[in-house]
Design a protein around this nucleic acid. Structure first.
Length: 330
DNA sequence: GTCGTCC
DNA sequence: TCATCTGTCTCAAGACGAC
DNA sequence: TGAGACCGATGAG
């Protein structure tokens, strides 16, 4: 879910921190990209947005995410952009509640899809199929294999990919953290990118100066808005959250004020379980930077994998390899 | 610009 | 009366190329 | 899954 309503809040309160950016302007830049989110987007968009069928090889292995990687890699190569794909590791314990909810929703949608199939209701089949979709171990393995053969770099994070993207951006390994989720800013990425067709750059420095917050205060704001790691205080939305932080400086003091002031206490309900300190620590932790896997383009492996194993068109793969080598001379 | 296709 | 928050609904989510 | 539009409820001034 990222940070609830953060984009909306920034658009109204700190519009200067959000700037549209043309992909050509990223020439020579390096990007850490949240792999899972991208692959999921490819899978959904390619499968369900315009056709009613799932793209797969004759054995039933999904291929939509592989097409997405191919297109994406070529686009970046054309524009001389280096990408490091970051894969999620083990989810942190504090995210378990969020993950349980997602699994439950996925299961429910799967059942609704089965019902829609029985009733031959194409619209609802697609709707619920998209929502019950998930990336299997095999799909991830295929994606990593393809990236290897394409000469791309990828790395496994110890836990959240977004946290590692932000860390790499903070430490200067990359210029941008790319993600659809706004968590990257809470994790401290100085510059993040969103979008695919139309890109948006968000500068953390500008966010903090517009909102008149330190980074720790911004983390508190994100927790109040709603994140994956902690529930929210009922009655506190974007506006109130920002006002409370400006007034009381941090979450500890806000909670103290809520418990000691009967008027505030009546108005805002803090949940019984409110592990905000764990969330604060999680957003501000130092992340272990695992070694990055680096490969070179391997036309033979690409052909074997895509044409022979995944039933891609030989002509298209040939054309693709030619373009890639043209932009990425080895 | 819209729409079909990608496997 | 206005601002704010909450809940619910709906839609779209990639990239390329032919036309 | 997220983001936008819309709606009703609530509370402050």
């Amino acid at each position: 879910m990222g940070i609830k309503n953060l984009m909306k809040f920034l658009t109204s309160k700190a519009p200067d921190c959000i700037t549209p950016i043309e992909i050509q302007n990223l020439n020579g830049k390096t990007i850490a990209k949240d792999a899972y989110i991208s692959l999921y987007q490819f899978l959904i968009a390619t499968n369900f947005s315009k056709s009613n069928k799932t793209l797969s090889d004759p054995q039933g292995n999904p291929t939509a995410h592989l097409i997405g990687i191919l297109n994406n890699t070529l686009t970046y190569a054309k524009n001389n952009i280096q990408v490091i794909w970051i894969f999620d590791g083990i989810a942190p314990n504090i995210k378990q509640g969020t993950l349980d909810k997602r699994n439950e929703s996925r299961q429910k949608n799967y059942e609704m899809m089965q019902n829609a199939v029985k009733e031959d209701d194409v619209k609802n089949i697609n709707k619920h199929a998209a929502r019950s979709l998930y990336l299997t171990e095999e799909s991830i393995r295929d994606a990593k294999m393809l990236l290897k053969y394409l000469g791309q770099r990828w790395v496994d994070a110890d836990n959240e990919a977004e946290a590692l993207c932000a860390q790499m951006c903070k430490s200067g390994v990359v210029d941008y953290a790319w993600s659809e989720d706004m968590d990257s800013l809470a994790f401290g990425a100085p510059k993040m990118l969103r979008g695919n067709k139309s890109l948006t750059e968000i500068s953390l420095e500008k966010v903090l100066s517009s909102l008149q917050l330190t980074h720790n205060q911004f983390i508190d704001l994100c927790i109040l808005l709603g994140c994956d790691y902690c529930p929210t205080i009922k009655g506190v939305g974007q506006v109130t959250a920002h006002e409370l932080i400006l007034k009381y400086k941090n979450l500890d003091s806000i909670l103290e004020a809520l418990s000691s002031n009967p008027t505030l206490n009546k108005k805002y309900t803090v949940p019984n379980e409110f592990p905000y300190k764990l969330a604060q620590d999680f957003f501000s932790q130092e992340i272990n930077q695992n070694p990055i896997n680096k490969f070179v383009v391997s036309p033979k492996d690409l052909e074997d994998f895509l044409v022979l194993q995944r039933a891609f068109s030989q002509a298209k793969v040939d054309k693709y390899i030619k373009s890639l080598l043209n932009y990425n001379p080895q």
